[in-house]
Computed example of a mutant assay.
Amino acid sequence: MYLDRVDLFDGLSDEQAEVLKSRSRVRNFAPNTIVVNEGDDGSSLFVVQSGALKAYLTDNIGREVTLSLLDPGDYFGELALLDDAPRSASVIALTRSEVLQIPRVAFLALIEAHPACMQIVVRNLVGRIRNLTESVRSLALVDVFGRIARVFESLAVETDGVGIIDRRLTQQDLANMVGASREMVNRILRDMVSGGYVEIEPHRIIVRKKLPRHW
């Protein structure tokens, strides 16, 4: 995975990206392995090179909220490049995964040698924050049907005129992503299937036609 394909580093020169790569290391994780825990000390950014991971939060009684699903080219732990605060979320490998671990010291060395790189990274982080704001808006202002529709739209890859979500998503997975009960998600999925909008297979979901924002 070349770092110029990662939006956080969009704008770095090939030489600057190579400096980061040369000071980083590749790590491999088996399925269901915790990569980082919420509250751990953070000193590295991780870039997904292969596999699938999930970033999530849990409360003290074990309830879980999924923040994002991570595929090749995605990244997590970016705040560790800028501060010494503990990890704000946990990340688990859903499948066998390979990630590039970029230490904060490598990033700071790059900034010291090329100060303009900080402006590039901060600009790209602002774009990420805007996306997070839209996610919060969705949770606060959009009904559950609309939240599920947005999740499907964000994950689907258009293939032969339909959207393919090529991963296994359980009803509980979706419930954790949209902040709803599994029972509510079950009812909405049944409606989507009966309306001809989606087709649910054991290891993928097919979006047959554009989903309305409201039901």
Rank of each mutant, 00 (worst) to 15 (best):
M1L: 11
Y2R: 14
D4N: 12
R5Q: 13
D7A: 09
D10N: 12
L12I: 06
S13R: 14
E15G: 12
E18V: 01
R23D: 00
N32I: 03
V35S: 02
D41I: 07
S44C: 12
F46W: 04
V47G: 02
V48K: 00
Q49M: 09
G51P: 03
G51Y: 02
A52Y: 04
A55F: 05
E64G: 03
L67M: 10
F76T: 01
L79F: 10
V91M: 05
E98Y: 00
V99I: 12
Q101K: 14
P103V: 11
P103N: 10
V105A: 12
A106I: 07
I111C: 07
E112L: 07
P115M: 08
M118P: 00
V122K: 08
I129T: 13
S135I: 13
L139S: 11
L141V: 04
G146A: 12
V151W: 13
A156G: 04
V157Q: 05
E158V: 14
E158K: 15
T159S: 12
T159F: 10
D160F: 07
I164R: 15
R167C: 06
L169E: 00
S181E: 08
E183K: 07
V185W: 00
N186Q: 10
N186K: 08
R187E: 11
L189K: 08
R190W: 01
M192L: 15
V193M: 13
S194V: 08
E201Y: 08
R208K: 15
